[in-house]
């Protein structure tokens, strides 16, 4: 169970934060956004970090989930739960149908294809105004309720979304340490070699792609109910790129790294607002320098630093 040690720590931190800082804006508002981003980053990392398949269209699946929930609950009066399920099914069908041909592509061609897919989904959201509300978006989405417990405060949303995050992390950690997880990592190493070992690469890749899309769709539904409002600009290709940045910044192939990337990229703009006109410039500079100096991501970089400090200390202790 050693691979779950970090997970228990995460659970503890998630529980303690709202207790130590009750009703703190950074915990229950920005924290919820960060957790939502973390769900998306963890799912994208499964695809990027472990299977080695870049996707610049993840926001599209997030959008399908969000809009399925938004449209079905407001325009057709569905209960949020079946609406969420419908979103998942729809996402699954789209991801499965398009996953096979798209995942045959490699490198930058794969990046372009997923980017294009995300943009097409976004254009559809903007153009089918009678259904989606167009660029002005769709409001009045009811909140979720679970056995009469309505999720109607920031703290309750924190509870729900952080719980989902923990469940997703637990699921992903278990997958990675299973047989299929090893197949995935083999894929990342070398696809040809993996195939030689008898791994069905297309099926494995498509499977991960669909799973990542489903998690994103679930996050989308939660997002729609939490914000009570959706508009296409939340699902643009800029957001897809932001998600990829979270994964890479934290450190690919590390679930905790993805969470860390999500937390940093969510909080950074909140902290940088004080710089006003300089905000964009500083954000770009930070992003660039982090990647130049820690090309494997912050998480791996910090691990190395930690190890160096530890060896240094033990050496001093010995002397």
């Amino acid at each position: 169970m050693s691979h779950l040690r970090g997970f228990y720590l995460l659970v503890a931190a998630a529980l303690l934060l709202p207790l130590i800082f009750p009703d703190n804006y950074y915990v229950t508002v920005v924290g919820v956004t960060a957790a939502l981003h973390a769900i998306l980053a963890v799912s994208l990392n499964l695809l990027m970090g472990y299977a080695g398949q870049i996707s610049l269209g993840h926001a599209g699946f997030f959008g399908i989930g969000a809009y399925a929930s938004a449209i079905l609950t407001t325009r057709y009066g569905w209960n949020p739960w079946p609406a969420m399920l419908f979103g998942l099914v729809l996402t699954g069908v789209v991801a499965f149908t398009l996953g096979r041909p798209i995942l045959r592509l490699k490198g930058h061609y794969l990046a372009m294809a997923t980017l294009g897919l995300g943009i097409i989904i976004n254009i559809l959201l903007v153009q089918t105004g009678s259904l989606t509300g167009g660029p002005d978006g769709l409001g009045g989405i009811p909140t979720l309720s679970l056995f009469g417990w309505a999720v109607d405060s920031d703290l309750r949303w924190y509870t729900v979304i952080v719980s989902v995050l923990l469940a997703v992390v637990w699921l992903v950690l278990n997958i990675i340490n299973s047989r299929s997880g090893r197949a995935l990592r083999a894929l990342h190493g070398s696809e040809v070699a993996a195939e030689m070992m008898g791994i069905n690469t297309t099926t494995t890749k498509t499977g991960v792609f669909v799973l990542a899309a489903l998690i994103a769709s679930l996050a989308g539904s939660l997002f729609a109910h939490q914000q009570a409002f959706v508009s296409p600009d939340s699902f643009s290709f800029f957001f897809s790129i932001e998600l990829v940045t979270m994964v890479v910044l934290g450190g690919m192939a590390s679930t905790y790294g993805a969470i860390m990337g999500a937390i940093i990229l969510t909080f950074l703009p909140e902290l940088l607002v004080v710089f006003e006109d300089f905000e964009v410039l500083i954000f770009g500079a930070i992003l660039m320098s982090m990647m130049i100096f820690l090309p494997q991501g912050l998480f791996v970089g910090m691990q190395k630093l930690w190890r160096r400090v530890a060896t240094e200390e033990s050496r001093r202790g010995a002397a």
């Binding site: 990829v244 890479v248 770009g284």
Partner: peptide, 14 residues
């Protein structure tokens, strides 16, 4: 490859 992509994205934002 992805790391360099993010670097150039950072550069473009900068």
């Amino acid at each position: 490859v992805v790391t360099t992509i993010i670097i150039t994205i950072g550069a473009s934002i900068f």
